[in-house]
Amino acid sequence: MSATQEIEFRDAIRDAMSEEMRRDKRVMLIGEEVAEYNGAYKVSRGMLDEFGPRRVIDTPISESGFAGMAIGAAMLGLRPVVEFMSWSFSLVAADPILNNAPKMLFMSGGQFGCPIVFRGNDGAGGQLGSTHSWCVEGLFSNVPGIKIVIPSTPADAKALMKTAIRDDDPVFFMESERLLGMKGDVPVGDDVLLKFGQACVRRTGTDCTLASWGRPVHFCMEAAEELAKEGISCEVIDLRTIRPLDIGSIERSVRKTSNLVIVDQSWSFGSPGSEVAAQIHQRCFDDLDNHVHRVHTEDVPAPYAFNLEQEYLPNTRKICEAVRSATYNA
């Protein structure tokens, strides 16, 4: 393992983009306030200075327009990174990102690919109200042709972003506003990449498997710590990407623990969580000691009030309750 340095999540993403832009002239960044303002969330600090306005491009507030433009650029050979200030705002660009990008290779009979990365904040940022608190993986994971990356640590964010930029297919890269300031050790150097579809065991345990991705992984770690005091040993699996989905790692863990709790901050109906549950029920039926439990965001629009929003989201308390129930310790 090479040396590491402690940096913020946002800078890990910036470093990944900058390194790839130095490496490959076709890579560019486009979005609202990514250039002059250094990013609405300061993810692209210093990039305009280094790469200039032809490769770091500010756009008007017109997601459908700049997403479509970037898709065209990708079809003709560039490798754009498109920043959505929030994935909530990507919904106005649904047609280009869902109806064009992921189908282009298929519809053109292999003539045009679409090597593009869409990135931005996903999930509740904290009191942003119903329309700006989207967790879009529930919607988007339903679409074939899209790769979906949802990292939980700065190191993963950097390594997966580099893989995303080098990938020949559209990659939806989902960050969390609540994690951008998180610091973590990130390997130094240009060449650390992570393959998609490889989950990571964050904590080993014997009684119950907790599977999650993105920010809720941290809630799972807190819950596992608390449950350990009660004598319940949890194994925490961070999926890192949900398409491709590393179901094999969850399967292996469930064969050991016989119990699975999925923590997914999207709504429960037709979600990645329900897909994982279905696949595990199919693959591990004879290994399960209880049905798969799921902790999701409540099935209502996001409330604004702080206390209500906390109750609305998956949280440590809910995870603990689900694990106790799954392991018959309720």
Binding site: S258, F285, D286, D287, L288, D289
Partner: peptide
Amino acid sequence: RVSPVARR
């Protein structure tokens, strides 16, 4: 009533 893993 038996859970699947208990039955196995």
